[in-house]
Design a protein around this nucleic acid. Structure first.
Lengths: 251, 251
DNA sequence: GAGATCGCGATTGTAGACAATCCGATCCGC
DNA sequence: GCGGATCGGATTGTCTACAATCGCGATCTC
């Protein structure tokens, strides 16, 4: 689960400063995942009394966590009217993908230059999951695995700033996807289109990797903006949208 | 003042939705500026009762604003010990400038491609201020003007994501500068080193502009990591660091 | 009957108070 | 004399209660 701000496994050899996550951290992750998974519909208002009681916390910490997401751009806060999930309409998809391409291509070059074998293997592993997901025809699972490949690639760059931005971007991509169409669609051949990325990374071919990433993203934009004309087979899913209910987090 | 999240002037022709900034917004800007200006020393703990009373607000909104800065990476929150201003030591300067170069070079290409004449003029204007600042030998003012040129360039890209990241990056650059040395130093010839950037932008020369930006940033890193061996004349200032007191914001 | 105005309900925004936690200094034991 | 544990002060983390604001509906007027 990419959006979770998990500590990069194995980066700290020993004695990494043990710092128990604060309650606000937990709520933040929970909320971000709820947006990512679609449990919180885009554009929908958030009633904080109900929401905070579901999570088993008071309004104070909940509001603090919400402000973090506001800073990320995942929530909008209008003074008298409260919070609502951000919408990313058609007109903002290109800028979003510009930013994404920016982060991912830069990360790609850095990863080629200095990623460890373990990090490269992690990307390969993420791609394996994408292949497995493709076989199941489960649109949601394919979408998750797709984004996870990209996230893992950025993680391989070893740059904390890029990784932080990417973590937010992934959720925004989901928001955009939800905003633009009620159905959740993904390429049926998502696995194939990502194979090139893994191969170029393993070959340490910077220009090739950047080109592969660019092609992948350009294609995604095209598909998002003109879903019917893409000419590629797609998997659809009627949007789950059940659970407006959040799991209470155990403290 | 770049860190202020001001609305991009002139982007909304008419009828931009008038949205009065919330109290949390005001506190956020105030805090960010306080860090940027050095009023809040790097690494120093933040006592929220005292701080919030100085600002004339309650602890609730103050904590919410603080969480926004935590998300930005400008503040650290350790569970039992409270808040403190982030430190960016030598080991994190290279990653920081990698991220900065990433944002600025991408923005540069976009700006060359589609910046309006007004936006280009704004960059030129920011550079004029830098020249004026250089004449005064005021290290602080030169530093501000320097960063403002870069910020204006990113603004000219017209990409909201890049601009948001840049707004945070600028403060982090300041933090790094404060973290690495007690003195506040800037190049005496800062104006000259930025002239190329403005010229390449006005000439709409993408590769030239990117090269100029890269050179500028590489030089900055070198100077930060080995201040004594830079071989360029520098302006120093014994670090103002007075006012741990914040102006109360009028509601 | 259409429009505007007033009033009500709900929700946010803010303030204050309580409880848990952590750091530092002192005291005791070895 | 030095290490460890304990006590005290302060600060944060959380909760509850109040006040301001906004949206929506009913009512009144023209």
């Amino acid at each position: 689960m990419p959006p979770a701000s998990r500590a990069p496994l194995g980066t700290a050899p020993f004695l990494s400063p043990v710092t128990r996550p604060s309650t606000v951290d937990l709520i933040t992750v929970e909320l971000r995942n709820a947006i990512y998974s679609g449990a919180l519909r885009v554009g929908s208002p958030i009633r904080e009394v109900e929401m905070s009681s579901q999570l088993g916390v008071s309004r104070g910490p909940f509001r603090e966590a919400a402000q973090r997401l506001v800073q990320e751009g995942l929530l909008r806060s209008t003074p008298g009217r409260g919070l609502s999930v951000t919408t990313i309409g058609r007109d903002r998809i290109r800028p979003l993908y510009e930013a994404r391409a920016d982060v991912e291509t830069s990360a790609a070059r850095l990863a080629v230059e200095r990623a460890t074998d373990e990090q490269v293997a992690a990307v390969r592993s993420a791609h394996d999951e994408l292949v497995a997901a493709g076989a199941t025809q489960d649109a949601r699972r394919v979408g998750d695995a797709d984004l996870n490949v990209h996230w893992t690639l950025v993680a391989a760059s070893g740059n904390p700033w890029l990784l932080r931005w990417m973590t937010t971007l992934i959720v925004e991509v989901r928001i955009a996807s939800f905003s633009v169409s009620e159905e959740y669609v993904v390429r049926a051949d998502a696995a194939d289109s990502h194979a090139e990325i893994v191969e170029r990374l393993e070959a340490r071919d910077a220009d090739g990797l950047v080109a592969a990433v660019r092609a992948n993203l350009d294609d995604a934009v095209t598909r998002l903006l003109a879903p019917d004309e893409a000419g590629v087979e797609t998997l659809e899913e009627p949007r789950p949208a059940p659970a407006p209910r959040l799991d209470p987090l155990d403290l």
